[in-house]
């Protein structure tokens, strides 16, 4: 059953995981193999990136733990204690498995309703959106599919994305279906709010190659959290700078009367990443639609 459902059902980004502080979280990972590469017998794992006081058994790092073989299921257990914006990915041969697509958003809601962190009023919000920086090099995927040596050092991400989509797919609220008719890209990056609301952006980066700056044009950004902790000293800015494996919580306060209803843009200021490979006006960009 799991095998039938799981085979060729890969989604990029992987499904967003949202847990709540205080919950017991059980995550079962079944390895259904790779039909397109039947020569590979890779195990896989889930690494909850940034989980505090992690135990190696549930850390998903394959050298320090055991990872699940084809046809089997491994259940990870996490007690959700410290809320914040995390991320998750497969840690097996991470320079290959991550850009090949095994990554997604993961965040833990705090026990304080509508606040990212407990006892941190600066982090309270009306609407929240996880935004994950990801990217890949199509030549690397081609080499992988055609069983060629993998060019790690030469990796050049020409498909920069947010939540597994390049603009304008980022603002398409619908599921995106691939050429085989399968659901392939489930996670839009469109941000909608009503003027006056506080928008929480849970921004993370799982780029395997680069640092990125994200900016919002027209709405001030207030950084209130970093790496799943409330900042002791929140600050205003026009951009946040993240390497792979970093996260930041940003509040967009739209209550300023000068901020009018309309469409605003969230985009990367590494300008070469505003393309979908050869196509311009794309890449790591999405819209904030204020009603």
């Amino acid at each position: 059953m799991v095998m039938d459902e799981g085979m060729l059902a890969h989604e990029f980004s992987a499904p967003t995981i949202k847990v709540k502080e205080g919950q017991d979280f059980y995550l079962s990972l079944t390895n259904v193999g790779m039909v397109i590469r039947p020569d590979l017998f890779d195990p896989h794992s889930v690494h909850w990136h940034g989980f505090p006081n992690a135990a190696s058994v549930f850390d998903g790092e394959p050298m320090a733990s055991a990872t699940v073989n084809m046809g089997a299921t491994f259940t990870y257990y996490y007690k959700a204690v410290i809320p914040g914006s995390y991320m998750y990915h497969c840690h097996v041969e991470a320079p290959e498995h991550m850009p090949m697509g095994m990554l997604g958003n993961l965040y833990m809601e705090s026990a304080t309703p509508n606040c990212a962190y407990n006892g941190a009023p600066e982090t309270c919000f009306d609407v929240e959106y996880p935004i994950e920086i990801v990217a890949f090099d199509p030549r690397f995927h081609e080499a992988d599919e055609t069983i060629q040596p993998l060019p790690f050092a030469a990796m050049n991400d020409t498909y920069p994305m947010l939540n597994g989509r390049g603009y304008p797919d980022t603002v398409n609220p619908a599921d995106i279906i691939n050429k085989d008719g399968k659901l392939a890209q489930r996670v839009p990056a469109l941000i909608t709010a009503t003027r006056g609301q506080r928008i929480l952006l849970r921004i993370s980066s799982l780029s395997t190659t680069s640092f990125h700056s994200l900016t919002v044009l027209g709405i001030p950004m207030r950084v209130v959290g970093k790496d799943a902790r409330a900042l002791n000293f929140p600050y205003n800015t026009n951009s946040v700078f993240l390497g792979g494996g970093e996260s930041a919580d940003v509040i967009l306060d739209t209550s300023d009367p000068n901020i009018l209803p309309g469409t605003y843009f969230l985009y990367v200021t590494n300008m070469e990443h505003l393309n979908n490979n050869a196509e311009e006006y794309g890449g790591m960009m999405t819209e904030i639609r204020l009603n």
Partner: peptide
């Protein structure tokens, strides 16, 4: 003991001239 990888999360940097694993990582 409990081992933990401490490494560059620009994951291409945990290779040695395209050979994985290697590079900037320790346990």
């Amino acid at each position: 003991g409990f081992f933990y990888m401490w490494h560059s999360h620009a994951e291409i940097e945990i290779t040695n001239f395209d050979i994985f694993p290697g590079g900037m990582l320790t346990m």
